[in-house]
Amino acid sequence: MYHVYMNYGPDQPVLYDITLRIGKAEFAFVTGPSGAGKTSLLRLIFLAEPCASGQILVAGENVARLPESRRHLVRRKIGVVFQDFKLLPLRTVAENVAVGLEVLGWPRRQVRRRVEEMLRLVDLEHKAHVLPARLSGGEQQRVAIARAMIGDPPILLADEPTGNLDAELSLQIYDLLERINARGATVVVATHDRAWVERTHRRVIALERGRVVTGGLPAA
């Protein structure tokens, strides 16, 4: 599904000569020590950073040379759970989740219904009208997850989606990710949560200091 091959660096290079391919409807982990470049890799995919050279194909589209005016069309196919959540501080939990659909142009009533559904799924209905600053780290994380998944994107990128969650909630979140994957979405999870990676027997792409160590190409 993506065919990523790039060299990347703002001032100092961060990712070197990465080639990897993640198939449609695949579930893959990106692992590696802190600072290995997991977040950077994901940022390339959802077009938050330009790549210095190489090609990145997302859903068959070469996004490396995509004009700015069309970037949002690719981003709409990708749900992102940011490592730092990136919630809108002045909007309530429900409004933050709703944004995921509003940018797609959904009508208001349907947005409201879907938001309720989504909040129930991440167990946050009771906090719907609270501002993000009033939430615990784990609660904020679940809001971010709800926003990323609400539009049922064909691609879901999750950067440490369980970083702030206890074992039970993590289980719930992985269950959610598995379910969205089962529905046909490609799911990529960046994490250093070894326990989870080993338990799920999913494909692992290991990064180390900006290079792919193992798992760049799917096991043949």
Binding site: F46, A48, S69, R71, H72, R75, R76, V99, V103, R147
Partner: peptide, 15 residues
């Protein structure tokens, strides 16, 4: 910040 977030979750320029 808000603008950046909106754009990252797929907002068009017009939005």
């Amino acid at each position: 910040d808000e603008i950046v977030i909106l754009k990252l979750v797929g907002a068009s320029d017009a939005f």
